Computed example of a mutant assay.
Amino acid sequence: MRRLVLLAAAPILALMLTAAEPPAAPDRPLTDVAQEARAQALFKGVRCVVCQHEAIADSPAGVAGDMRRLIREEIASGATDQQVRDDLVRRFGDYVLFTPPMRIGTWLLWFGPFSLVLTAGAALALNARRRAAEPTPLSAEEERRLENILRNEKLRRDPDATSPHDGR
C-alpha cells in the first residue's frame, strides 16, 4: 500500500517541480545614462506584484524583470516619470507604488494606522479613567448573618499551610 501511494505521488511531485517560474530575462540597461538613472530611480519606488515586499529593482521574479523592461521602454519612448507611474497604476493598481497617491480610495492606507493608534489610545484613556465600583454596604440583616457565621465557625488550620513560626 505504501509503495502504491509513493507511485501515485511521484508524478504530482514531478509536475510541481517543473511548474516553477522560468528565470527572468537579463536586464538590458538603456544606452543613455540619464535615462537609465531615471529608470533605476523608478525601480526603487515600484513594488513587485509577486514578492509584494520588494522593489522591482531587487526582485528576482520574472514579472519584476518584465516591469523593469516596460519602464525602460516607456522612458526610451519619451514618457515622463509621472506618465510611467500612471501607466503602472493603470495596469496593476495603486498597490504597485510604495507611496500610493492620496485619494479617497487610498485613505485607509494613509490614515488607517494613525486612526488605529488614536482609537487604541482613546480606549486606554477611557479605561484608565474608570473608577473601581464602590462596594455596597451590607444591610443590617446581612451584617447580623455574617456575624453569626464568624462567631459560630471554628477556624481550622490548613494542614498544607506553613508558617515561619511553626519551627519546622
Rank of each mutant, 00 (worst) to 15 (best):
M1H: 05
M1C: 03
R2I: 01
L6C: 08
L7I: 13
A8E: 05
A8G: 13
A8V: 04
A9V: 14
A10H: 05
P11H: 08
I12E: 03
I12D: 02
L13V: 14
A14R: 12
L15T: 08
L17E: 06
L17R: 10
T18I: 07
A19V: 03
P22K: 11
P22L: 15
P22I: 02
P22E: 12
A24W: 05
P26I: 07
P26T: 13
P26L: 08
P29T: 04
T31V: 06
V33A: 14
A34M: 12
R38D: 09
A39V: 07
A39L: 06
Q40Y: 01
A41D: 05
V46C: 03
R47C: 02
C48T: 11
V49Y: 05
C51V: 01
Q52F: 03
Q52T: 07
I56G: 02
I56E: 06
A57V: 10
A57N: 02
A57M: 03
D58C: 07
S59Q: 00
P60W: 00
P60V: 05
G62P: 01
G62R: 12
G65S: 09
M67V: 08
M67E: 01
R68P: 01
L70S: 08
L70E: 09
I71R: 03
E73N: 09
I75D: 01
A76H: 14
S77C: 00
S77K: 07
G78A: 04
Q82M: 09
V84Y: 04
V84L: 08
V84Q: 04
L88E: 03
V89G: 04
V89Y: 04
R90A: 11
R90Q: 06
R91F: 02
F92W: 10
F92E: 11
F92G: 01
G93K: 03
Y95R: 10
V96D: 09
L97D: 03
L97R: 06
F98Q: 12
T99N: 08
P101Q: 10
M102C: 04
R103Q: 09
I104R: 15
I104N: 07
G105S: 15
G105W: 02
T106K: 05
W110L: 13
G112D: 07
P113V: 12
F114H: 13
V117A: 15
T119M: 13
T119S: 15
A120T: 06
A120K: 00
A120I: 15
A122S: 13
A122E: 15
A123V: 15
A125N: 02
L126R: 05
N127F: 13
A128W: 14
A128G: 13
A128H: 12
A128F: 14
R130G: 15
A133W: 05
E134M: 09
P135E: 10
P137M: 11
P137Y: 12
S139R: 03
A140W: 11
A140G: 08
E141V: 04
E141K: 02
E142G: 00
E142Y: 03
E143F: 01
R144N: 03
R145W: 00
L146D: 04
L146P: 00
L146M: 15
E147H: 02
E147N: 07
L150Q: 13
L150K: 13
R151W: 14
N152A: 12
N152P: 00
E153C: 11
E153I: 06
K154Q: 13
L155H: 04
R156T: 05
R156N: 06
D160K: 09
A161S: 10
A161W: 08
T162G: 01
T162I: 10
S163H: 11
S163V: 05
R168N: 13
